[in-house]
Amino acid sequence: MDSEWVIDAQGLEKSYGSGASRFDALKGVSVQIAPGETVAIVGKSGSGKSTLMHLLALLDQPDQGTLQVAGKDAKSLSKRAVNELRNKEFGFVFQQFFLTPNVSVLDNVILPLKIAGMGGKERRRRGMEVLEQLELADKAGNKATTLSGGQKQRVVIGRALVNAPRVIFADEPTGNLDTATGAVVEDILFDLNRSQGITLVIVTHDEELAARCDRQIYIRDGLVVSHATSTHTGAHTLTTAGGAA
């Protein structure tokens, strides 16, 4: 049953600091995400939604709780295996672009492949493929700093996409963009989900964006307060009710 979920988290707890300054970011959160699903993690800033995404993306380790990614227990994985998993299976889109300045668009896009140790020719081919898909092929040789905001975010999506990941984690992907360009970026992401079956996990406080996802998980003060399933899909039903473990 477990391998049916691409991500299966049970009772995640995470706190920062100790003593009086101790802050419990997550107080027992369970989340299950199926392959091909689009899930929005919604909450105000400080609600713990970013911490949850970091744990799900294996960027951080929970204090308590279990986390299974593609049927494998995250705890049992070596550091190296975790790195490889992030490199091969996950793509990241952040609110800020984090593009390397003074480096070409293509070089920015193929960074994950470079880290994976792929050969130069294959890297280039895959990079150009992705740029063509995002209609940025003509900008491949340009420096990343010369692009507009929307183009930059498309480069970031290209970078997240280039390793053909199973899951793309997007943290406020449109937070830095105006409404029109934000909508274009959203369209690209949901299109990828439909055409390539890539699972989307979107962290946002934007209700409109959240509404476009199959499912919304609302987080407040480190707890899941409610689950909602959008009407346009009935594929996946709500599985867990939030609450302290």
Partner: peptide
């Protein structure tokens, strides 16, 4: 800092 963080997030050891 950001660049290093990004590379590590993308699985660079």
């Amino acid at each position: 800092t950001r660049e290093i963080g990004l590379m590590k997030a993308m699985g660079m050891s």
